[in-house]
Amino acid sequence: MLKFILRRLLELIPVLLISITLVFFMVRLAPGGPFTAEKSFTAEAIERLNEHYGLDKPIMVQYGNYLLNLLKGDLGPSFQYPSRSVNDIIKETFPVSLELGALAMLFALFVGLMAGIVASLKPNTLQDHVPMGLAMTGICMPSFVLGPLLILIFGLWLGWFNASGWELPIDRVLPVITLGSAYAAYISRLTRGSMLEVLPSDYIRTARAKGLSEANVIFKHTLKNALLPVVSYLGPATAGILTGSFVVETIFNIPGMGRMFVLAAFNRDYTLILGLVVFFSLLVVAFNAVVDILLGLLNPKLRMHS
């Protein structure tokens, strides 16, 4: 285990380096720099700003400086928000997205797994069609429809929640449902799909023949193996959901990271984009490592039984 984690940590270095290098040069290729605006800055002003941020130096020098600062843990200043450093922005926005994402993921896992299991037990019956129909509705309802719809019904008509904001604990409810439903729908479909594949396997029949209880068969034997694709899906999905969703954060006016990610790209805020990519890479690699550990844990069972 320790060896595995160490190896992953070592692998992180080239992954980060390649990501940073690609993004570093990529952002500079996109038309429009950080200082193009509706009312044009004067050429002199842009020159000064470039000087201030070191954008006037040869690109390889800029690149070198960036890497040096990164080693010190300094992600640089944001171009769009001059009085904030990228570190500040991540520190402020990540906890918000983390809370939203974690709650949404719990919601999605709970609803998704339940619906998927229930549906798979009696395929092509009402017990299958109802939860799957709901799941499909979740997929058909993009968050830019579901979010405003929930606000309309529960915020305005029933008056239970604020229409937007992130001040009170109760403000979490609608965004969590909005963000979680799409993932719940995915999880339920994947779960049902692989449950259906595992259920008819020989070893499940053996387990049943041995007279194990149905719950035991489902949770101990079937689900464990059926979780493989769900777990593979969850790696990148969790990294994604925890770093926020632009649409949901915008709809509910939540000060999270997902909004920053897209705004940084729109604003050509080079350092902020890079900083967020670095942070996101760390998460992706970490979660995929967790996924691989989980897959390893789920695997021997499969091998043993078949």
Binding site: P148, I151, L156, N162, A163, S164, G165, T250, N253
Partner: peptide
């Protein structure tokens, strides 16, 4: 309040925010 989505801003207004 920096609410960028105009529809949501209108709804926040109606919700008394």
């Amino acid at each position: 309040h920096p609410i960028g989505d105009h529809m949501i801003e209108e709804r926040s207004f109606r919700a008394g925010q």
